[in-house]
Design a protein around this nucleic acid. Structure first.
Lengths: 108, 108
DNA sequence: TATATATGCAACTATTCGGTTTCACAAGTT
DNA sequence: AACTTGTGAAACCGAATAGTTGCATATATA
């Protein structure tokens, strides 16, 4: 049962949870109110998110507040980096091409 | 059988395929050589990647070259944007805090 | 033409996934 | 002490997932 961040964000409900708790911590009950599923289902999602350390919890009385561990999101960003490099390079190449065309036109 | 980019990159083999074909197109056979699975399994991954338009194919004789449709990767980047904002804000807040501490020290 | 190569698709299988219902337990409230 | 509330865990279920083997088809090569 190896958990990783990419598998965690594959599910749309989990992505929604992540967005909800990104700015402020929330309890499972409060979260469940946002979805068309049971609290238990949300609890299972939170467990998965906890397993890959995307989420941290803080107990307050009998309530447990879950919040996003935003540092983990950088792992995704880091993976994306290699592709960002590619699309930025291509963008620059396009830019140079346009500049070249412009220069040629002016030279004529 | 709803396909989306996040589900596509959930599988580690598919992520590896994506990286391999990001810079140059490759055939299923050539790809399969990189993994410990059958060519047919790779073919299935390519089908999934094609279904969510992460990959484009070009036929050359009896070979089919697959290449990454890098534009689609920006969808992930776009989703990450909201979190990038958060972690940059926090970074700036830390920055301001340090600046404030420094100023206070100098003022003393 | 006969053969080898590159590929996709169908059928099958074991495992995982996302959900539900039921239960147990701890912490507040009456 | 009795009750309510917030939670996690277990057992179960149908669907999806990732893989396999076997087959069909198209293109190149002898």
């Amino acid at each position: 049962m190896r958990r990783d961040v990419f598998q965690a964000i594959a599910d749309p409900t989990r992505r929604a949870i992540i967005t909800l708790i990104a700015l402020q911590a929330m309890t499972p009950n409060a979260l469940a109110a946002h979805f068309d599923t049971t609290r238990q289902a949300v609890s299972k999602h939170l467990k998965i998110l906890t397993e890959c350390e995307l989420v941290k919890q803080e107990q307050k009385g009998r309530e447990i507040y879950y919040q996003l561990e935003i540092e983990r999101m950088k792992d995704i960003d880091k993976w994306l980096e290699q592709f960002r490099k590619i699309w930025e390079t291509r963008f620059n190449q396009l830019d140079e091409l346009l500049l070249k065309l412009k220069t040629e036109k002016n030279g004529k």
